[in-house]
Design a protein around this nucleic acid. Structure first.
Length: 118
RNA sequence: GGAGUUGGCCAGGUAAUCGCUGGAGAGUUUUCUCUCUGGAGGAAAGUCCGGGCUCCAUAGGGCAGAGUGCCAGGUAACGCCUGGGCGGCGUGAGCCGACGGAAAGUGCCGCAGAAAAUAUACCGCCGAUGGUCCCAUCCCCCCCCACAGGGGCCAGGUAAGGGUGAAAUGGUGUGGUAAGAGCGCACCGCGCAGCUGGUAACAGCUGUGGCAAGGUAAACCCCACUCGGAGCAAGACCAAAUAGGGGAACAAUGUGUGGCCCACACAGUUCCCGGGUAGGUUGCUUGAGGUAUACGGUGACGUGUAUCCCAGAUGAAUGAUUAUCCAAGACAGAACCCGGCUUAUAGGCCAACUCCACUC
């Protein structure tokens, strides 16, 4: 499959970093997920996950969304370079199968690049 | 073979590629790269109990509050487990039970029912006894003596019966009576006493008492026993930036008090100290540990020996894709750690036992 890593510096780690993205976001969403993004001054992209317990009840479903987000991010990261992205889940996201989730995410990444890179 | 009961176990497999993360080693000694090796559960869940650990509080005792509640044992401890007793359910293997006290007191008991705690009213039964009235019979001039039927009403007797109800003042039978009643008796039940068995809960037997006047304590309550509070965001350590605190040194420095020096106060520069925020480290996985085996015990479990190290993340790792096999994959994701309980769960496997049918 794809080569491509997902190391520590490619994640949003601190509350302050999340706050930056939430403040002036470029927003993309469908009925399952919402993506927020913002330009950073780095040569690579960074991903943050904010899957609320209130929206997605079981830990298994939360993990599934997080893992799939990371995985698809890892595959698409070259075209996302220079962006800080936060993924938010809605209630319906818990019902998706892994295959559906993958399709939804890949679609969203493409829309995100179109909108926010320009 | 079918139906079932109990206990235990498993929880998709294999291969390739690309990732995440703990540890060890090497290179590089910011940090990254490479190699090897480990990486969710039976419930990790609910947070309902119990304990370890940490900090705080604490002479001792009482009250309040909460919990537990047949007996014995196991355990670090428990509301858990094991064995036993009693009661209930099942043809049976087995299963279920907050299972102390209602002659300390208070409260409550819908509907139905005569009546729901008061031994009495009501309906009903009887009317022997006492009173009264009527009819029949007998006698008749009157008196005395003997014999004497049926019925109504009243006084009164009665707790047997009254289709109800979860529950109605022991049950069944028999004697007894005007009708009845533990009023008497037999058996069963209950209370009390003794003896026997058992560590005990309790059981059995014998004797004795006519039986003492519902239920509810998961209603208050009484009795016995147990319990200090908060939780790993506990707690310990390191520690920027900024502001402020204390101390020391510096000086021909400035301002104020003063006529001036000295001195004092506030500023200045440098250094040190303690508190402490962001952030980081630690607590953090070797433990009431697992596996095997021997011995003790009905068993829960205990003791000895050997052997193994088996997740430790911190925006939070354990995944993705492809191929393939089959019976086509349920519930579900560690967050300081253990022991339980409860709840969710596609299926599959093993052992012991029970009932039914059939064959020999």
């Amino acid at each position: 499959m794809f080569s491509g890593r997902f190391a520590r510096h490619q994640r949003l780690l601190r509350p302050a970093e999340f706050k930056q993205v939430f403040e002036r976001p470029c927003k993309i969403s469908d009925k399952h997920l919402t993506l927020l993004c913002r330009q950073n001054d780095l040569p690579h992209a960074r991903l943050g996950l904010a899957i609320a317990k209130k929206q997605v009840k079981t830990a298994v479903a939360r993990n599934r969304i997080k893992r799939m987000s990371r995985e698809t991010f890892r595959e698409q990261q070259t075209m996302l370079a220079g962006l800080d992205i936060v993924v938010l889940a809605r209630t319906s996201a818990a019902q998706l199968t892994p295959q559906e989730l993958r399709r939804v995410l890949e679609n969203l990444w493409l829309r995100l690049v179109k909108k926010c890179k320009s």
